[in-house]
Simulated scan of single mutants.
Amino acid sequence: MKRILWHVIFCLGGILVFSPVVMYWFIHGSYERYIWIINGSFPFNNFGSGPVQLYLYAGLLSAGLILTTISFKHVNKYLKYAVLFIILLMIFIMSVSCYSPKSVNTQISKSLKIEIPAASIIEYEDSHGGFHGDGGTYAKIKLDGKGAEKSILEIKNSWRMLPLSENLNLIMYGGIKNNIEYSYNLADKFKIPHIENGYWLFVDRHSKSIDNYDDTDLFNRHSFNFTLALYDMDENILYYIEFDT
């Protein structure tokens, strides 16, 4: 009975030693989950903090090392090898799964052709679904620090300065054109403030688009498939929208 107890303690220690890897994967494995976690209730809203994560990982690791150390002499070598093998295997699997070419940062970087620094997305939502993939994607990205300098420079060099074109202004804020009222109001839908000082980029992804950066035919089709990004110079915030109908 005592031998079984030592085996249980050793296995529990192995789980605790491995748990920081699981926690890191759970928090940072995907940006969608990361945003969901840090926008949750206490204590999950603190998981985005570096010091909190450090204390959590250190506590779990310390507890695991203590349990495995005191029980190490009382378990057979086969169990030791088995636990070590499982830990190494799971670390490898989770390390591979954390590297995803379809991460939010990668998708946005590829779409806008600028580099989005890691951990800079502070809000994210994606309602795309169904057979046709209709819906909207929204991201709010804080561009500050050294990692963002290159991105901001690329924006200033290749994007257009505000204000928006007439069509984009209509779809973002609504209005009337040629006696037709447009009430899409995407700015209100995604809670994007009116930006006066900044830059914008429009990408027409519609199958009938001739010029991907021209919004002239935006309202001349039966559906929308476009990407729009707005950079607020005063707040250093980038707003990203994908809209598909």
Rank of each mutant, 00 (worst) to 15 (best):
Val22Pro: 03
Thr68Pro: 01
Pro163His: 08
Glu166Phe: 11
Phe42Pro: 05
Leu67Val: 09
Gly48Asn: 06
Tyr138Ala: 05
Ser207Asn: 10
Phe92Asp: 12
Ile155Met: 09
Glu196Thr: 10
Gly64Phe: 03
His128Ile: 10
Asn225Ser: 12
Ile116Leu: 04
Ala187Gly: 09
Lys80Leu: 14
Lys140Met: 08
Lys142Asp: 08
Lys191Ala: 13
Lys191Thr: 11
Lys156Gln: 13
Leu67Ser: 01
Asp204Lys: 00
Tyr124Val: 07
Tyr182Phe: 13
Phe219Glu: 03
Ile141Ser: 00
Glu196His: 10
Asn45Leu: 12
Val75Phe: 10
Thr106Pro: 02
Asn185Tyr: 07
Leu170Ile: 06
Leu162Asp: 04
Ile152Gln: 05
Leu143Trp: 05
Asp232Glu: 07
Pro193Cys: 06
His222Glu: 15
Asn220Gln: 14
Thr69Lys: 13
Pro117Cys: 05
Ile121Asn: 01
Glu235Pro: 02
Ala148Asp: 03
Trp6Glu: 09
Ile70Ala: 07
Asn212Ile: 06
Leu84Tyr: 15
Ser127Ala: 11
Phe92Glu: 12
His74Thr: 09
Ile108Thr: 02
Gly64Tyr: 01
Val83Gly: 01
Tyr231Glu: 01
Pro193Glu: 08
Pro43Leu: 04
Ile70Cys: 10
Ile35Thr: 05
Phe202Trp: 08
Val104Pro: 02
Glu125Ala: 12
Ile180Gln: 15
Leu230Asp: 04
Leu168Trp: 07
Ala187Arg: 05
Glu235Cys: 02
Ile66Met: 12
Glu115Arg: 11
Ile195Arg: 03
Tyr31Asn: 09
Ile35Tyr: 07
Ile114Leu: 07
Ile192Thr: 02
Ile195Asn: 01
Pro43Thr: 07
Ser223Ile: 10
Glu115Phe: 10
Leu238Tyr: 03
Tyr99Pro: 01
Asn167Lys: 11
Leu168Ile: 02
Asn45Trp: 11
Leu162Thr: 01
Phe18Ser: 00
Leu186Thr: 01
Phe26Met: 11
Ser207His: 13
Tyr31Pro: 05
Asn169Gly: 09
Lys77Met: 14
Thr68Lys: 06
Val52Met: 13
Asn39Lys: 14
Ile141Asn: 00
Gly136Glu: 13
Lys146Thr: 13
Ser120Lys: 04
Gly64His: 03
His128Thr: 14
Leu186Asn: 04
Met90Gly: 03
His28Trp: 15
Leu153Val: 11
Asn157Asp: 12
Val22Thr: 09
Ala58Gly: 12
His28Ile: 08
Ile108Arg: 00
Lys80Asp: 11
Ala229Glu: 02
Ser207Gln: 12
Asn220His: 13
Ile171Lys: 01
Val21Glu: 14
Ile38Cys: 05
Ile195His: 03
Tyr78Val: 13
Ser95Tyr: 11
Leu56His: 06
Thr69Gly: 10
Gly50Met: 14
Tyr239Arg: 00
Ala229Asp: 02
Thr137Met: 14
Asp204Thr: 00
Leu162Ile: 06
Ser97Leu: 15
Leu153Gly: 08
Glu196Cys: 04
Glu235Trp: 07
Glu32Ser: 10
Lys189Met: 08
Ser120Val: 01
Lys80Phe: 14
Ser111Trp: 09
Ile121Pro: 01
Ile152Phe: 05
Ser19Lys: 00
Lys80Cys: 10
Thr245Phe: 06
Asp217Ser: 08
Val8Tyr: 13
Thr137Asn: 04
Tyr24Met: 10
Leu168Gln: 05
Gly59Val: 02
Ile155Val: 07
Lys208Thr: 13
Pro101Cys: 06
